[in-house]
Amino acid sequence: MRKINREAVGLDRRIELHKRAAKVSSYTEARVEWKRYRATVGAKALIGCLERMAGSRKRCVYCCDSRSSDIDHFKPVALDYRVAFQWKNFILICPECNRFKGSKFDLSDTGDPLLINPTEIDPWDHLIIDVETGVIAPRFSGGDFDLRGDYTLQVIAPINDEATVEGRRRTAEKYLELASLAAIEGDSKNARRAFKKAVRYDEFGLASWFAFREGSLEADFRQLRDNCPPLWRRFCVLACKQSLNSLGN
């Protein structure tokens, strides 16, 4: 999973969504109106905005392996028809993740969604990764697993699909190799270029894991930080830009 930032939509798009929402008063009406809306020019513009949010390769924000092509209502319309035309409720994900998600939407004791919304929450606040295997797991604290992390992994099973895990593992391995070499070679032009390329083509959002999370404690990255502070700072800047969704767009 990876954090993405929601773009603002223009006034004309917001007005159109508001008008559509005003027409519906039931789940059935919402489904009919949504189908009509999807065929409009305005919907195509909205999809374009969601695609920009997903990045140039339009990878699914959940599994990060498949191409995003489905507009998902984060809070299912089946549970609340009023969210059918709310911009903040739209997210672009792949068909497989969408199929697994369906209308699953459990709430915590405080009424907050247990499913991670990557447009509002940094998934790494609730998840961890084993860089040797590429497997993602919920954080463990206070004697129990993180509720959001645990629930999200149960619902969106493709996150730990075998092929997805392998891609994530290879990406982590690439970062560790670069850190190991750069710690020895220093802040060279080639090292900077290699890190920039790795972050640009990192479709799993692992740069921020290695820069700001437990990944920074890996031996290769500790060595990089200690032996080559300028290059470490450059990598952290790249990771920050990636988390802000400014690379690859």
Results as ranks from 00 to 15, higher is better:
residue 74 F to I: 02
residue 1 M to A: 06
residue 86 Q to P: 01
residue 206 L to F: 00
residue 117 N to W: 06
residue 15 I to N: 12
residue 201 Y to H: 03
residue 108 S to H: 09
residue 35 K to L: 15
residue 93 I to F: 00
residue 108 S to C: 09
residue 107 L to I: 10
residue 230 P to H: 04
residue 89 N to Q: 06
residue 33 E to W: 08
residue 11 L to Y: 05
residue 42 G to C: 10
residue 71 I to P: 00
residue 45 A to H: 09
residue 34 W to T: 07
residue 153 L to T: 07
residue 154 Q to N: 06
residue 239 A to L: 06
residue 72 D to N: 03
residue 105 F to R: 07
residue 52 R to N: 07
residue 111 G to Y: 07
residue 85 F to L: 05
residue 107 L to A: 10
residue 221 F to E: 04
residue 86 Q to D: 14
residue 75 K to R: 15
residue 228 C to V: 15
residue 61 V to C: 12
residue 239 A to F: 01
residue 236 C to W: 01
residue 50 L to M: 15
residue 107 L to G: 10
residue 119 T to H: 11
residue 235 F to V: 03
residue 68 S to A: 10
residue 90 F to D: 12
residue 249 N to Y: 02
residue 30 A to G: 14
residue 33 E to K: 13
residue 177 E to I: 13
residue 139 R to F: 02
residue 107 L to W: 10
residue 222 R to A: 01
residue 71 I to L: 07
residue 16 E to P: 06
residue 91 I to R: 03
residue 87 W to G: 13
residue 81 Y to K: 09
residue 12 D to A: 12
residue 22 A to P: 08
residue 18 H to F: 14
residue 212 F to E: 07
residue 17 L to N: 05
residue 153 L to P: 08
residue 27 Y to P: 01
residue 141 S to K: 13
residue 110 T to Y: 08
residue 3 K to W: 00
residue 67 R to F: 05
residue 127 L to T: 02
residue 232 W to S: 07
residue 74 F to W: 04
residue 216 S to E: 14
residue 237 V to M: 15
residue 45 A to Q: 10
residue 176 L to F: 04
residue 186 G to V: 09
residue 112 D to H: 15
residue 22 A to H: 09
residue 150 D to K: 13
residue 164 T to F: 03
residue 73 H to K: 13
residue 193 R to E: 14
residue 236 C to S: 05
residue 242 Q to T: 05
residue 76 P to C: 06
residue 50 L to N: 12
residue 177 E to R: 14
residue 228 C to K: 10
residue 146 D to I: 05
residue 80 D to K: 04
residue 178 L to Y: 08
residue 90 F to E: 12
residue 171 T to V: 01
